[in-house]
Design a binder for these strands. Sequence first.
DNA 1: AAAATCTTTCAATAAATATTGAAAATTTAA
DNA 2: TTAAATTTTCAATATTTATTGAAAGATTTT
Lengths: 168, 168
Amino acid sequence: MRLIEAKAQFISSWGAFGTYWGINRTMAQIHALLMISPDPLSQEDIMEELDISRGNVNMNTRELVDWGLVDRVLIPGERKEFFSAEKDIWKVATQIIKERKKRELDPMLKLLGQLENIDGDRKDPKVKQLVDTVSGIRKFGGQADKMLDKMIRADESWFLGTLLKFFK
Amino acid sequence: MRLIEAKAQFISSWGAFGTYWGINRTMAQIHALLMISPDPLSQEDIMEELDISRGNVNMNTRELVDWGLVDRVLIPGERKEFFSAEKDIWKVATQIIKERKKRELDPMLKLLGQLENIDGDRKDPKVKQLVDTVSGIRKFGGQADKMLDKMIRADESWFLGTLLKFFK
DNA sequence: AAAATCTTTCAATAAATATTGAAAATTTAA
DNA sequence: TTAAATTTTCAATATTTATTGAAAGATTTT
């Protein structure tokens, strides 16, 4: 397989994959492109490579920067700004987990907390089932939350070493 | 908070939460409704509770059954079929992990495997960066894959006990 | 076998989401 | 300061995804 072909293939599949992750297709494609680029790329470069509009590149690079997956870099002597992606996959995963936890899990747990105190007879099966379901999710979510915190704080060698040995 | 209110609240937030999980809003709402219902519900029941069309209920319940989150149940003496959701949150999570792994991670790893053999000079930074990125993702994904397999096979007590003690 | 009940399908439509592109804003160079 | 280069915004548009509802298909009862 040729470089050009492999590159297109990779960008396309990472794009499709991203949609499963709360990351839109274009955003994931830009991310893919930057991950396999040895050097930072400009807005213009990305527009050409992926054949998308300037506005689209602008919005999605900003989003990637928000997610902490991409950095703006300044190249001496160049006027425009360039973008560069974190290439260490462990850091990429950690960052995604961190952001998703913040954006999804935390708000969910907060919201469920409000449902704890329901008026009404705990003997009523309807009330009981709701309370049990909510508290089950909260308990589980709380544990997942703690676990993710640990993972986020762990460094790669710890993860690949200790945890995976544990799971062997 | 009253039962009615708490119920609406729960269904709505679980619905929003679901969209983060590759599960569409309505599907997640039906799932939420079934989780908090002490007894199985019919298509008609779901239509009324969530105020959605018959076709919509039909498509989304089928999808939930496909995901292994909901069962069709037959109630003696009743002609129509009823639906009931797994209420053990550990099993729900396990099932979701299992399905997502099957639908997303496995195909991704398979695809990346095809990108391994790229013609061209490994000294070329462009080739090198692509190869390194792909192999990094594959390695990481392969580990995640193994870990998820373990989790899927583990039972609740093992998870909540051993793993979380480990992560304390 | 016909009627009644229930489930599924799917074309049409609606709603949500992503993309464009040109104008406005900002930044840097002359 | 003015001009040139670059980035940002956002209304209009296109695309994708979800929903409806009525007709067709099954299944069960009489």
